[in-house]
Design a protein around this nucleic acid. Structure first.
Lengths: 212, 212
DNA sequence: TAGATTGTTAATCGATTAACAATC
DNA sequence: TAGATTGTTAATCGATTAACAATC
């Protein structure tokens, strides 16, 4: 089960979808699947699936396919979902509160430990069972709880300054919902920019070009 | 300014990001930019930018770069943002309400026309200036207002049935936040699946493999 | 064993980068 | 004109698909 040194970005980006589909099949009580069956369900080619899965060590069995639980836990491990990482949410507006309530962080090996907002009217309120704290408390909080992840649900204008401060406190990763493009601003800091607007533009394109 | 017949999916997926960056530069008062400058700002190569922009007709000027307003409106046009499309939101839970309030639909040539929820305790409440209606009213509403887009913020379990019903009413596009994978379920229906969990898994991978 | 399906190599395809003549 | 920068072709690179021997 020797892993390849580095898996290409195209493969990595497909892993979450594999993980979801395989999890679903397990829920349905399935225990094994062939690359051909999985390909049909996911609208991929069997060849691609075999190539992808082989990037992290062959554990299919010629003649009888892949073990779903084995695949699931292995992909989860590669994605780092077996860890235990603390997260803080910055910005308790509509989007921030929705994220706090809606996401099942535990499923991803994470725990939302604190919610912060600079609006004093919000501090003290409780969201997802967590009391909103004032931004002035954040440095102290990070030093004490050392969360690795900051979820940015703040306006573009304050994102840059806020992110710099968080990095200096020791934050290692950003899940960035602000419209400020953090890509490649820091070294050794993981960033996922979520641009819901981009997704909506692609939908718009899809409508404008449907039937072509 | 002759457009190529079909622009490749890789190029299309970059358009929203171009659109955002160019919009930002215009806000800063810039009117022209060279492919080299834009490449530096967006962490791309100048060559790729020239290739991409040429897919929809060359309007750069050798010697003095591209006109930003021209680029912006042209990319917007290609993405279909110059249209006027109606949208309905299905599911007024935390996520649905956050989307309704947070997204500036007008910026994308869209208008949120109705919000629906099957929970009777919610009907009558107002979100983003729109009264929540009961799901039983939706068919009537779609026939009257003919929105093209349905935003699905409902649980996985009800997504399949709900989507089928909406398609039969005439909905042409789904912005799908449910965890049900709508990809390739319908013909001639545009779908954008938003899986926030996938993004969080990629962040997790990024942390687990930072410094590699 | 025979059938099924993998792991893996080779072939194809497409996307990105480099180079440079054309042109403002 | 000379300098800058495009549009576009050619070269490279990487990703996907096809094929098939290995193997359960």
């Amino acid at each position: 089960m020797a892993k390849k040194e580095d898996i290409s970005a195209s493969v990595i980006k497909r892993l979450p979808r594999y993980y979801r589909f395989i999890g679903e099949l397990i829920k349905q009580g399935k225990t094994r699947i062939s690359s051909a069956d999985l390909a049909a369900q996911m609208s991929l080619t069997a060849s691609q699936i075999r190539q992808d899965l082989n990037c992290f060590g062959g554990f299919g069995q010629p003649g009888c396919g892949y073990s779903l639980p084995e695949l699931h836990s292995e992909i989860g491990r590669i994605l780092g979902l077996d860890g235990h990482r603390g997260a803080v949410l910055i910005g308790a507006g509509n989007l921030g509160r929705a994220i706090a309530i809606h996401m099942d962080f535990e499923k991803f090996g994470m725990e939302l430990k604190g919610i912060f907002d600079c609006d004093e009217n919000k501090t003290g309120l409780t969201v997802a069972g967590i009391r909103i704290l004032p931004m002035t408390d954040i440095e102290k909080f990070i030093v004490r709880e050392h969360p690795e992840i900051a979820i940015l649900c703040i306006p573009k204008e304050s994102a840059e300054k806020c992110a710099d401060m968080l990095v200096s406190c020791g934050i290692k990763a950003f899940w960035n919902f602000s419209h400020y493009d953090l890509t490649a601003r820091y070294k050794d800091i993981a960033v996922e920019n979520v641009h819901l607007g981009d997704s909506l533009m692609l939908l718009s394109y899809g409508i404008a070009n449907s039937g072509k």
